[in-house]
């Protein structure tokens, strides 16, 4: 062996056979889940991996995969597992990418290495390296999931909308963005709390900034209106644009006993009248 690993030779010399056997194996393992990938994506990733794998063994050895020589392989795996996380693969399915190569490498080694002591040694090395890389795959997959969750939490936070007092007795809640989360509950509750705190008799919920009103959003809105009513305050829902009005009708959501206005300005005018005020032109 003389320091040089038969493993890297086998990988580099039998690249094409290993690639096709490996891709086939993964396709079988992933079965139907394969449709989460673009056509050719798996082939490309497997081929990129093998291209980086051989030289990494040769230069970096198999004792550890953390060295500089292994960094192209690790970078590649990191990209692949993050994208698997986004595509909806499970951690196990993601790790299969690496683990499924074991059997293929063992077969190739068996064909190429005749001496049985050396064969056992090379198989051990292949096994250690792939276990190491498999763990790394799982770790980066986890990081990928965390990134997705962080981004989503960010989106939800954007919903933290303040309740504003437009006039004594008149509140407004301008809603912006996505409305179907636990966050909505919080925002709606804060409106009810403000009604109590300010003794307001009318509240405008403005949904100009809400792109979609589905049945869950409608349910939240209706619940809030009903709760406010029990507390002696009327709600006006404003900012219902034509496309939203049409979808609400198709969904079959009953909002006829809720006062609605096209714009916040219209709603404000109604609210002022309700509290006995009028806007007049000076002079």
């Amino acid at each position: 062996m003389a320091g040089k690993s038969a493993l890297s030779d086998v990988v580099q010399k039998n690249g094409r056979e290993i690639l096709s056997a490996w891709v086939q194996r993964q396709q079988t393992d992933l079965a139907l889940r394969n449709n989460l990938l673009q056509p050719g994506e798996l082939q490309q990733q497997a081929s990129d991996f093998l291209t980086a794998f051989g030289p990494a063994i040769e230069r970096g050895g198999t004792d550890s995969t953390t060295g500089e020589a292994w960094s192209p392989v690790r970078d590649l795996l990191s990209t692949i597992s993050r994208s698997r996380a986004r595509q909806g693969f499970t951690p196990a399915e993601t790790a299969t990418f690496v683990f499924s190569l074991k059997r293929i490498l063992f077969d190739a080694l068996q064909r190429e290495v005749k001496d049985s002591t050396q064969l056992a040694d090379e198989m051990w090395k292949a096994s250690v390296v792939l276990d190491d890389l498999g763990l790394y795959t799982t770790e980066t997959y986890q990081k990928g999931r965390e990134e997705i969750i962080n981004r989503q939490q960010q989106e939800l936070m954007e919903l933290s909308t303040p309740v504003v007092q437009l006039w004594a007795g008149v509140l407004a809640l301008p809603l912006i963005g996505t409305l179907d989360s636990a966050r909505t509950q919080v925002v709606m509750e804060s409106l009810l709390q403000s009604i109590v705190d300010t003794g307001s008799s009318i509240a405008i919920i403005d949904i100009t900034g809400v792109p979609v009103v589905d049945t869950l959003v409608a349910q939240h809105l209706l619940k809030t209106v009903a709760a406010a009513r029990l507390m002696g305050a009327d709600c006006i829902i404003s900012g219902i644009r034509p496309q939203i009005a049409q979808t609400i009708v198709h969904l079959g959501v009953e909002i006829s006993d809720v006062m609605t206005k096209a714009t916040l300005a219209d709603a404000f005018a109604v609210a002022l009248t309700r509290v006995g005020l009028a806007i007049v032109r000076k002079g």
Binding site: D180, P211, V212, V213, D214, T215, L216, P242, Q243, I244, Q246, T247, H250, L251
Partner: peptide
């Protein structure tokens, strides 16, 4: 159109949920 977009997006939201 905006109306068509809103219709399919709303339907998708229901079925996904």
């Amino acid at each position: 159109s905006l109306v068509e977009q809103t219709k399919i997006v709303t339907a998708a939201s229901e079925l996904a949920r």
